[in-house]
Simulated assay, not measured.
Amino acid sequence: MQLTESKRKYILLGIVAFIITGFITAKVLASKQDEEFLRDDLLYQQTSQLYNDGKFTEAENLVNDLLLRKPNSEVVNYLGAVITANLADYNRSVILFQKTLDINPHKVEDPMFMLQFGEVLFFVERYVDAKTVLEKCREGGWVPEDYPTYQERVTELLTQIENMQ
């Protein structure tokens, strides 16, 4: 079967049209994704600012929206965990800390995360779990620059746990 010159032109035009349609579709989808990313980033920045300003109730409202939009985001779950801990909603905070750890198991190497997680476990009276986390803090020998009394706080919590058992 031989292709005539006109058939070749139609085939070439069809391929070119297919490629152009693909580029246009990709551009439209990418712009929607960019808009969604920018919206989520703005919401995260607002939530962080409210948290830093000590406006925990307002921050909780925004972080709840973020958690619905990005339930598997490590940073969103962690931010939610510290916000809810500051609101004394320790049960929810434990869940969010655990989810953060499930998403990124390497958080066990983050000294502040581990201390915060240990404290929240202590506040919900999960002393065995709190002791495990706090002993990891002690074994790590961590002393963050911005928290020079880190090990003293760890020892204080472990002592309180020992006195309760």
Rank of each mutant, 00 (worst) to 15 (best):
Q2E: 14
T4V: 03
E5C: 10
S6F: 09
K7I: 04
R8A: 10
R8L: 14
L13N: 06
L13Y: 13
L13I: 12
I15F: 14
F18T: 06
F18R: 00
I19W: 05
T21I: 06
T21F: 11
G22F: 06
F23M: 12
F23Q: 09
T25V: 09
K27S: 09
V28S: 00
A30K: 13
A30M: 11
S31W: 10
S31A: 07
S31L: 04
Q33P: 01
E35P: 05
L38R: 11
L38K: 15
R39H: 11
D40C: 09
D40R: 15
Y44N: 01
Q45Y: 03
Q45N: 02
Q45W: 01
S48V: 10
Q49V: 11
L50P: 01
N52Y: 14
N52H: 10
K55C: 02
K55V: 01
F56Y: 15
F56Q: 10
F56E: 06
T57Q: 12
T57R: 11
E58V: 14
A59I: 11
L62K: 04
L62P: 01
V63R: 08
V63I: 13
N64L: 11
D65Q: 13
D65T: 13
L66R: 01
L66M: 05
L66D: 01
L67D: 03
L68I: 15
L68F: 15
K70R: 13
N72K: 13
N72W: 06
V76A: 04
Y78E: 09
G80K: 12
G80Q: 14
A81G: 10
V82N: 04
I83W: 02
T84R: 12
A85C: 08
N86F: 10
L87Y: 08
D89E: 11
Y90N: 04
Y90S: 03
S93Q: 12
I95V: 15
L96S: 07
L96T: 05
L96P: 04
F97G: 01
F97C: 02
Q98F: 05
K99E: 13
T100A: 15
L101M: 14
L101R: 12
N104Q: 12
V108L: 09
V108R: 12
V108N: 07
E109V: 08
P111H: 10
F113A: 02
M114V: 09
L115I: 08
Q116T: 06
G118C: 00
G118V: 04
G118E: 00
E119M: 15
V120T: 06
V124T: 15
R126W: 10
Y127I: 03
V128P: 00
D129Q: 14
V133H: 04
V133C: 11
L134H: 02
E135M: 14
E135S: 00
K136A: 15
D146A: 05
P148G: 13
P148F: 13
P148E: 05
T149S: 08
T149L: 12
E152D: 10
E152M: 06
V154E: 02
T155H: 09
T155S: 11
L158N: 02
T159V: 05
I161F: 02
E162K: 05
N163M: 09
